[in-house]
Design a protein around this nucleic acid. Sequence first.
DNA 1: CCCCACACCGTAAACGTTTACAGGCGCCTG
DNA 2: CAGGCGCCTGTAAACGTTTACGGTGTGGGG
Lengths: 386, 386
Amino acid sequence: MADGPTINTIAARAGVSIASVSRVLNGLPTRQETVRKVMAAADELGYVRNAVARSLKSRRTHQVAFAMADVGNPAYLAMLREIQPVLKAAGYRLVLHSTDAVVADEIDVLHSLGERYVDGLIMVPLRVTEAHLETLAAARAPVVIIGSVPEGTRVDNVRADSRTGVRLAIDHLYALGRRRIGMINGPLDTVPGAARGAAYREALGDLGLPYDEDLVRIGDFYRAEGGRAVAELLAGVPDVDALMCANDLIALGALDVLRAAGRRVPEDVSVVGMDDTDLAAASWPSLTSVSLGSAERGKAAAELLLDRLQGGDREPRLVTVPPRLVVRASTAGVAGERISGDDARDGARDNDGDNDGDNGRDNGRDNGRDNGRDNGGGSDRKEGGE
Amino acid sequence: MADGPTINTIAARAGVSIASVSRVLNGLPTRQETVRKVMAAADELGYVRNAVARSLKSRRTHQVAFAMADVGNPAYLAMLREIQPVLKAAGYRLVLHSTDAVVADEIDVLHSLGERYVDGLIMVPLRVTEAHLETLAAARAPVVIIGSVPEGTRVDNVRADSRTGVRLAIDHLYALGRRRIGMINGPLDTVPGAARGAAYREALGDLGLPYDEDLVRIGDFYRAEGGRAVAELLAGVPDVDALMCANDLIALGALDVLRAAGRRVPEDVSVVGMDDTDLAAASWPSLTSVSLGSAERGKAAAELLLDRLQGGDREPRLVTVPPRLVVRASTAGVAGERISGDDARDGARDNDGDNDGDNGRDNGRDNGRDNGRDNGGGSDRKEGGE
DNA sequence: CCCCACACCGTAAACGTTTACAGGCGCCTG
DNA sequence: CAGGCGCCTGTAAACGTTTACGGTGTGGGG
């Protein structure tokens, strides 16, 4: 851990100037003999370029930040899984920011772009406040926002479409013959809650179904809360034959309660979740869920940012990622999985997380066609005892 | 995005030297009047310190890297969830490296420490080769390895204990009266596979149960593979009354096949998984699983690294994290969850991932006592249309 | 009244690169 | 053979900080 060699060290040893060393290391035209000497010296000394000094001079860090509310959240993770390889392929490192859902922290991240420790930022804001917009306008590096921003905000933007997502689900339930379709929503003062609630009402209307307040229950985006809401709904409206849940956790709660109440899923009641997280494929019966394309959004955001980093100026772009209905047993009544929409997903993933320094890995999932499997890995080294 | 102000800009505007500016910004003793002028100028200009220049001078980046095989893997994520807050609290940024299970990439990461873009590294190596050890010995920044390293390697090290983990599970099954306990393992040439297989045999022996080869099946660490292996086992040994699965995915496969075969879980067959991933709590019946303490290992690693970054020299430490058996319905036969061991976990997590820029968050999970819930978030801004 | 101590501040060097510029040298051309 | 052109290389400045060092001004004590 001693002080490493610098180009000065190399220059001295090779008997040339630091400019020549730099030129050789950067592949600029140099006499063959000089190249040889410099390379030899660099090799012998085990030289590694100092990224910090390099960044100072070049004004490029080759780092990009990704900021979201919570590292542990599956929707963000799905984004991260796609963002990472895109950036890596382009030679960027990824700096992770977890804002713990504190708005001030998000503003901080935006502000800290001025420190120039990253070349750009992908952010999933909790909500978009005035303060966000102001800081954004003054940001000293390119930013891509995942989530909706007010019309006219000059920033690259990637959105999902949960309205269409809800509609896909309702149409699916309708096609299965369901007519008493309940909705278990999260709080209406959240943006997702409001949007999904409105979309539900709209979709019913378009199908000519009446909007029945008794069929709607508000809980929170938790499993237990969802279950509670379902229990209430069952008590009030025993003839409900389908449940549209505002996220997968609520839907798992619904499965719990329906099972306890002796209702068969999907024979008596169909259940649809939302977000298509890993949990959907793991549950029993496996859960039909609306994917809002977290993975695709992440990928799109990364590509937008790279384009801006490389391309320079252009008008801000808006990318909207279409939702997809992933049909599983909770509506279709089969143990297997059937995909509707343009893509297949099966989220179950796990690993063998062990102390022996050998862990599972995923094979490529580049194109969203991911069967979600983990490789157990392997090892040729057994001495790491337990 | 114009060029931001530097201390030179401020010095000019405040009519002082850059040294004074620096002193003020760093809180070194300065005349009150000077402080005022500098602060005023800095505020007006919206000055933000350039982290790169600062790092070059101070030789500290306040960044730490975390390298593992795959961002999407739940075991690594559990680590990440704990590492992140620890580093953040200490003022460090987190740089993420996903090596895609390519050993050469891991060596690269180790080597790139010479670039000095981070102050330290936490690494979960796929396996530990000679090349790892060599590069490790020459590493230019402190490293913490999660996973076993050969005796005598001079590096901070955090390990799990899957042998004891398997034993916990087997003892539990034995206590429930199970005597025909099968094992569904991953490939034996993987470190986890070998270790868990051996532990199974040993545990049976200690309980006075015979080791019956017919009760052991090797598949891979996948759900479908696990299911296939279970089907074989059922065909050969119909009287099996418990299954020890080498990871949660295999266990999910086991549940699938047992259900299809008309065996009740846990009445006819008890099932235990391993790793206690989020999927364990989501499945039906919920899955008893052995936690190898990924979260704790992550936290311990972060703390070791911080200690080394702050403390300086000391002997390398070894931390071993004890496993924990999380009893759920697949062995206990209750819908609810009962925790055995010293801690409670319930991994279900989800969110409302929506395009409206409003997302769920987790409340504190600092001490491992985590009820795994997500908050739906909220928003006061509705104009983000869909 | 002189000198010294002290508080404050400015100058300049350093961190490790990249790169503009200019100098030296060889060779070709006229 | 002189001039000029090109290739290669070295010198030095710059990126934006931090910090050692020395200078200046003030006030107090001998």
